[in-house]
Design a protein around this nucleic acid. Sequence first.
DNA 1: CGATTAAATAACTATATAGTAGTTTAGTTT
DNA 2: AAACTAAACTACTATATAGTTATTTAATCG
Lengths: 155, 155
Amino acid sequence: MSKPAKPFVPVAVLEAVADYFKILSETSRLQILQSLRSGSMNVMELCEATGLGQANLSKHLKVMTQAGILTRQARGTSAYYNIADPLVFEFCELACGQIGDRLQQQAKTFLQAAPFPPNDRTANKTTQSQKTTSQKTPSQKTREKAPAPTSHIRN
Amino acid sequence: MSKPAKPFVPVAVLEAVADYFKILSETSRLQILQSLRSGSMNVMELCEATGLGQANLSKHLKVMTQAGILTRQARGTSAYYNIADPLVFEFCELACGQIGDRLQQQAKTFLQAAPFPPNDRTANKTTQSQKTTSQKTPSQKTREKAPAPTSHIRN
DNA sequence: CGATTAAATAACTATATAGTAGTTTAGTTT
DNA sequence: AAACTAAACTACTATATAGTTATTTAATCG
């Protein structure tokens, strides 16, 4: 393999970006962020909210604080953590939207490929869940309201 | 540790979001995305552009394709890959901006904590890099134009 | 100062995965 | 059909790190 062509952006920058996303690529950390969304919490409170162990929490909190995503404030024997980088919620919201869109597309693909005609399947489902005698209109409404994953920024 | 409080968002959703960020949390993958930004490329071309090995590339490309971020099109013996999810560039741009802001803040912290007065240090640096006789105006300009990492979406 | 509690840290294990070398598969040409 | 090349896949290693147990540190109170 020859040397890479001149990169558009220094690899060091890409590394920093990758590091940023790495921090967000853990469910536990997203749970922490979700819990802190509504306001400052200490470690014990975060333990209860997330179900994570204290030592594990401390570890994650340290990483996130050093990365500048959280701030820490010691008060007595407690340490309170707060969101320092609200951009993370925007990231999660965008990602949720994208994943939802993709699931919708996949659902559509499966419905079209199903051995039953889409209308038969959809109507069957709609009739059960909505208990309406109308088969055409509800089936269209159900399609439009296909559930995208709700963003975790909403309490 | 007691059971977690009712989460705001199902853990399954957070897991999907974490998976999405995990894909972006690798420098190699960001290099691939950067290369594909300007248009479709086959694997050999991506090898040259990124300096990554062919087998490694294939692996990453498969993951990203299955995740819906890339599309693959076989043409003859070649496989061409294309960006399917342009949102990734928005993510990277936002992350770059955030990292840049943070670096600026850190720089400011260091400059204020330095044993030398900030103006003396900045003026010294500016004189060397810009070779102007003016010491006040350039120093302020340099401050305002402190380099944020450029986003990799710009060619 | 000793006791208590919250939080951080150290040491360890299990798991995931990037990267590599080797091999197989797929498509094309002669 | 054989030869060639691009790309995918397999098997392996090295590395990073989440999660856990145990311990230490920090703050407070009696």
